[in-house]
């Protein structure tokens, strides 16, 4: 098993490298100059000085320098925020995003799993239909509308939540709730599908026929195999949630990482684009490995497959 994990780790590192190379290629090839942009243009001399300062004249050198720096945990300067380097930007934004994203995943899990189990147990009944419609509705309205609506009701009208700013407990519920909705909907549906399949399997039918109460059959016997698809979804979902969502951050003013994905690309800030992508893909690989580990722990049959 350790060998399997080591192999996964190696493959993960290779994936991250290729993600980096691909992003680099895209960043270099898109039009637009990171140093020019506003109404006032900088002179040729100024631009030349800046280019040399950021080693932008030689793409290959920049490619190697950035990679070398990243290996020493130094992500280099950011063009769009000259007073800060990418390390500081990531360090200030990532914990916020991880907190909000982590909480959102926990909320989605704690609500989505029971909802999915209950609707599977009552498949085809009104409960099932209403849960299904509710979760579908959650994902059919854009997050920015839901977020703005929640903000208007709870912050502007009821004054239960603060507007903007960051750092207190009261700032958390609205963004967490908004961010969790799409994950919640997906987890519910995965859980429901898994549970239906697992409840239809022979051994559960046998167990019920032998007199095991449905409650025990559902929660004890059918639950574990039904949870596995949810578990494998959790890897990418957690990585995605923890690297922030631009929409949620913009609506609620959360100083998270999601805004940098968008702004760095729009500002053509190569250092920051590469940094955010590296963080995202590293997190994705890490969570997938953790999930694989959990998977083998829950379902030892997988080891043979690996």
């Amino acid at each position: 098993m350790t060998r399997g994990l080591l192999g996964r780790f190696g493959a993960g590192i290779i994936t991250v490298f290729f993600v980096y190379a691909l992003t680099f290629l895209m960043v270099v090839s898109i039009p637009g100059n990171p140093l020019q942009g506003g109404e006032r243009k900088m002179s040729r001399e100024v631009e030349a000085a800046l280019r040399s300062r950021y080693h932008m004249d030689d793409n290959w050198r920049y490619f190697a320098d950035f990679l070398g720096g990243a290996l020493h945990a130094d992500l280099g300067p950011s063009f769009s925020y000259p007073d800060w380097n990418c390390n500081q930007i990531i360090l200030s934004a990532l914990p916020v995003s991880m907190l909000v994203g982590g909480l959102a995943i926990i909320v989605a899990l704690m609500l989505g799993v029971p909802l999915g189990v209950v609707s599977a147990a009552r498949q085809g009944e009104w409960t099932d239909a209403s849960f299904l419609s509710a979760t579908l509705t959650c994902i059919s309205i854009p997050t920015f509308v839901i977020g703005a609506f929640l903000l208007y009701i709870f912050a502007v009208r009821l004054h239960w939540a603060p507007i903007g700013g960051w750092g207190t407990l009261a700032h958390l519920p609205l963004p967490v709730l908004t961010l969790s909705l799409p994950f919640l909907a997906y987890i519910t549906r995965l859980m429901r599908a898994g549970m239906i399949e697992s409840l239809g399997s022979d051994y559960i039918r046998t167990a019920i026929a032998k007199g095991v109460s449905p409650r025990v059959a559902i929660w004890k016997h059918a639950f574990k195999p039904a949870f596995l698809p949810v578990l494998s979804y959790l890897g990418p979902a957690t990585a995605q949630a923890m690297t922030g969502s631009f929409v949620v951050e913009k609506v609620f003013g959360v100083p998270g990482l999601g805004q940098h994905f968008v702004n760095a690309a729009l500002n053509r800030d190569p250092g920051l684009v590469l940094s955010t992508v590296l963080v995202f893909s590293a997190l994705l690989v890490a969570f997938n490995i953790v999930i694989d580990f959990l998977y083998t722990w829950l379902d030892p049959r997988i080891i043979e497959a690996v």
Binding site: V19, T23, M26, S29, I30, F246, L284
Partner: peptide, 19 residues
Amino acid sequence: VDVLYGLPYILMVILLKTA
């Protein structure tokens, strides 16, 4: 495909669109 999965979706759309 794995590598492309490792790219943040929104970033890729923006880069593709501008390119």
